[in-house]
Design a protein around this nucleic acid. Structure first.
Length: 296
DNA sequence: AATGGCTTCAACCGCAACCCT
DNA sequence: TAGGGTTGCGGTTGAAGCCAT
């Protein structure tokens, strides 16, 4: 008999997280920063195992997570990267910093795998229909061929840091709270009033705004949430705190280490990564990713 | 309206890698 | 350096929602 799973311990809760648990977890991480997951259940009183806490944070509550539909470009990136890397979801997620590995894995298993099975030429169509992905791949391969292009890894950090397009944990929690509050009639009325107000506001939103951006407006305001929860700087503190030492930053700060590691293990792909990192300096990655430096 | 099959995705499990003493 | 503890990763599961009948 091996070691029993941590979650089989008596009194450990399993299953979906409640908004109350989320709030406890986020406020704890806000105060102490992410990491040392072992101590989280003990210190917070949450009846969850450390693994469950970490997973909930990294896949759902962590700032910077974009939820909702994948864009055609993201689809293209996933298809290409999966073809090159296989099912290394964490590595693939490092190229889509707003998405979690779990999200990408789910999306692959539920959408893309079927698509490719049904239309084996889906990869080609992505290349032909998505010119940026096409550029991405062709440039990568030419870079590999040319066996050149090594420069500072820090450029990609500049690209990701402080990007305002990232959802904060406040936003993630507020989405939860919105659903939670809908369960009471009083709250439902409040939500409806807010929605009405927002729909008026949304009419003024420029026509170029994406659906995803509009959806991100469909939440209670940060001010409201923060006064509701008495959180201070919830959206940024945990993130900033962890930036100095954390592996939790994952797609950002650990990218350099991961890159080093991958470079050793997968020499051909390292050139692609180097190209990516180089291009970040020139602003071409932002272009490919559909991000503008101005939006950050 | 009821129900049964299908789809989605949050969460769990087990293993491997990493870290610390 | 070995061994125990912790964290990260990828595969899998199951509850909830959706949809066709």
């Amino acid at each position: 008999m091996g070691r029993p799973p941590c979650c089989e311990k008596v009194g450990i809760k399993k299953g979906p997280w409640t908004p109350e648990e989320d709030i406890i977890l986020v406020s704890y991480i806000q105060e102490h920063g992410p990491g040392n997951w072992r101590s989280v259940p003990t210190n917070t009183g949450l009846l969850r195992c450390s693994k469950s806490c970490r997973l909930r944070w990294t896949n759902y509550l962590r700032p910077g997570i974009k939820r909702g539909n994948f864009t055609p470009h993201e689809e293209g990136m996933i298809i290409h990267l999966q073809a090159m890397l296989g099912n290394r979801w964490a590595a693939i997620a490092s190229y889509l910093p707003q998405r979690t590995d779990n999200d990408i894995k789910n999306y692959w298993n539920t959408h893309l795998k079927k698509q490719i099975k049904k239309f084996p030429t889906a990869l080609d169509s992505h290349i032909t229909s998505d010119s940026s992905s096409c550029q991405f791949i062709s440039k990568s391969y030419s870079t590999i061929r040319n066996n050149s292009g090594i420069s500072s890894h820090s450029s990609v950090l500049k690209l990701n840091q402080g990007c305002s397009t990232y959802a904060s944990s406040t936003e993630n929690i507020s989405r939860l709270l919105e659903g939670w509050m809908r369960t009471s009639p009083k709250a439902a009325l409040k939500t409806a009033q807010e929605k009405q107000l927002r729909s008026i506001e949304n009419n003024n939103i420029q026509s170029t705004q994406t659906k995803a951006e509009q959806e991100s407006c469909d939440i209670i305001s940060h001010e409201e949430l923060e006064s509701l929860l008495s959180f201070e700087n919830l959206s940024s503190v945990a993130w900033d705190k962890s930036s100095s030492n954390s592996s939790l930053h994952g797609s950002q700060s650990t990218l350099t280490d991961e890159t080093k590691m991958k470079s050793e293990n997968n020499p051909p792909f390292s050139f692609l990564e180097k190209w990516l990192l180089d291009e970040a300096t020139n602003g071409q990655v932002e272009e490919l990713m559909g991000l503008s430096v101005d939006s950050c």
